[in-house]
């Protein structure tokens, strides 16, 4: 067993876990932050994307112990004082989600896309950048629209 401590959504958390515990397991099972999902075993689907020190990471492909001393943000940490983050709002406004399972990873990836590519995103860029997030419901059409709109409103 090993002790881990990190900041999750702005709060310090600690835990004692087996070395083999993945970050996603620590979030879901120890912290009960079940918004981060597990959709595959091969780092393909992106349902588990969170931000570690400000960049997107597949939390199913990182050990909890590797996140020691980092700042982790999950889908639960985006909305401030009850207001949706602009990207969350854009997904709602543009019907960018159906069953909601891939959605947390999509939103976390989307914010990372904006952080790296700016607020004016063309469709091709968004589609390429979504390579690591699979959705079965939406056909991506409205996800792409959501991210373009979310990028704009994140720019203020």
């Amino acid at each position: 067993m090993v002790n881990v401590s990190m900041s999750v959504n702005g709060k310090s958390v600690t835990g004692e876990v087996e070395e083999r515990t993945l970050l996603v397991q620590f979030l879901r099972e120890n912290l009960r932050l079940t918004g981060t999902h597990i959709g595959c075993d091969t780092s393909q689907c992106g349902a588990c994307v969170v931000h570690v020190d400000g960049v997107s990471v597949k939390s199913c492909t990182m050990l909890a112990v590797q996140a020691n001393s980092t700042e982790v943000t999950t889908i639960e940490g985006l909305a401030a004082n009850g207001d949706l983050h602009p990207m969350q709002q854009a997904f709602k406004d543009n019907h960018g989600l159906q069953c909601g399972f891939c959605t947390p990873g999509m939103v976390m990836s989307a914010i990372d896309i904006v952080n790296r590519n700016g607020n004016d995103l063309d469709e091709t860029t968004v589609r390429k950048e979504l390579e690591g997030n699979i959705c079965r419901c939406t056909g991506y059409h409205n996800i792409v629209k959501s991210i373009q709109a979310g990028a704009k409103s994140m720019g203020g």
Partner: peptide, 9 residues
């Protein structure tokens, strides 16, 4: 290589 999240790690 891979996707953005993979490239970050």
């Amino acid at each position: 290589i891979g996707d953005p999240a993979v490239r970050n790690r």
